[in-house]
Nucleic acid binder design. Structure first.
Length: 364
DNA sequence: ACTCTGCTTCAAGACGCC
DNA sequence: ATAATTGAAGCAGAGT
DNA sequence: GGCGTCC
């Protein structure tokens, strides 16, 4: 569930920490993306009608490939250098939460069964979406596709969001793009929401800087993490009756969850038994991430034409012409943006005599 | 009156043709 | 055995 | 912009 109500809390209490940006302003930028969440959305929405989805001849689902392929091309054409980060093992604390979701899905599967027997189209549509799950195979399919496209893939040891944040902290990428507010709690210095929306043109890209969030809320990072835990996170329960607003007030007043617990009226608020807030805090402060430079190497290389045609056309029934055209798009996009951010940034100005300090500008 | 929490519900891609 | 979303909007009702 | 198709 991410962090409950954090968007609204920040909009109300730290409006200057977020700013609208143009999609085009990320030309040449390296951006980390949580792959699993994208795959999930593709499975739910791409080519779905009732229980029907896009499939290959063997009847295996290909919606995730279609979605990942077109979206990644769109990013490359915008000059963005995406790096997709895949989930590893979830932390133990998350397993309780995940068990709940599992049982919800089991319920939905039953509901779907009934709807199908009753032939209720609307219900079939509704419940089938809730039974979607991302399998290991889906993940492997997408990794293979991305590698063939020449787009880097990183396998996180645990939470992908945490790995994305770590990449941004160590300046290996410019920003993290996600719809999940956890990114800020993991300390991603620059965080983008709605990066993918502008195609439908409704929502502008929203850019958050964690340093400004802290500055405006007047909190330390540790206090911000405590605020997120109290607001409600995936790792442990929160205190019933305390939401974002109250949590912010209490943190400002007492400084930490420990001090809040010492001062709070325990008649009024019941603290959960065996409340693992300290472990949750630790997961946000020091999540398990990979820091090995060799494993984090990112290269945006030319696409593998033959490999893509074998995989998409021969193995998964994609239209041959479409794939060929798409490959050309990828090549054109990579040529255009391989010059990097600076030249293209200055090109419209038309003044080539200006000396440029290359190195300084190349930092993310 | 007003604020806040907490529950339920929903919707979720990208492209091209018209 | 294997796999585990999300935010947001709208509404009810408790608390202050 | 609404609507069907992608596999």
């Amino acid at each position: 569930m991410g962090i409950k109500g954090l968007t609204k809390l920040l909009a109300d209490n730290a409006p200057k920490a977020m700013k609208e940006q143009k999609f085009e302003s990320y030309f040449g930028r390296k951006i980390a993306i949580d792959a699993s969440m994208s795959i999930y959305q593709f499975l739910i929405v791409v080519g779905r009608s009732g229980t029907e989805m896009l499939t290959n001849e063997a009847g295996e689902v290909t919606s995730h490939l279609q979605g990942m392929f077109t979206r990644t091309i769109r990013l490359l054409e915008a000059g963005i250098k995406p790096v997709y980060v895949f989930d590893g093992q979830p932390p133990d604390l998350k397993k309780q939460e995940l068990a709940k979701r599992y049982s919800k899905r089991a319920d939905a599967t039953e509901d779907l069964q009934q709807a199908m027997e009753a032939g209720n189209k609307e219900d079939i549509e509704k419940f089938s979406k809730r039974t979607v799950k991302v399998t290991k195979q889906h993940n492997e399919d997408c990794k293979r596709l991305l590698r063939l496209m020449g787009v880097p893939v990183i396998e996180a040891p645990s939470e992908a969001e945490a790995q994305c944040a770590a990449l941004c902290k160590s300046r290996k990428v410019y920003a993290v793009a996600s719809e999940d507010m956890d990114s800020l709690t993991f300390g991603a210095p620059r965080f983008l929401r709605h990066l993918m929306d502008p195609s439908s043109r409704k929502v502008p890209v929203m850019e958050f800087e964690v340093s400004k969030v802290l500055e405006e809320l007047n909190l330390t990072m540790d206090q911000f993490i405590d605020l997120c835990i109290l607001s409600g996170c995936d790792y442990c329960d929160s205190i019933r009756g305390i939401g974002g607003q109250t949590a912010l007030k209490l943190i400002r007043q007492h400084g930490s969850i420990e001090h809040i617990l010492q001062n709070i009226n325990k008649e009024r608020y019941s603290i959960p038994d065996d409340w693992p807030y300290q472990e949750a805090r630790r997961l946000f402060q020091e999540p398990l991430v990979c820091t090995d430079d060799e494993q984090l190497e990112m290269k945006w290389s030319a696409p593998d034409d033959e490999g893509l045609i074998t995989f998409l056309v021969n193995e998964n029934g994609f239209n041959s012409d479409r794939v060929t055209k798409a490959i050309e798009k990828i090549k054109a996009a990579k040529n255009k943006s391989s010059q990097g951010r600076l030249e293209s940034f200055f090109k419209p100005v038309g003044n080539t005599s200006m000396p440029i300090k290359r190195k300084a500008y190349w930092l993310p």
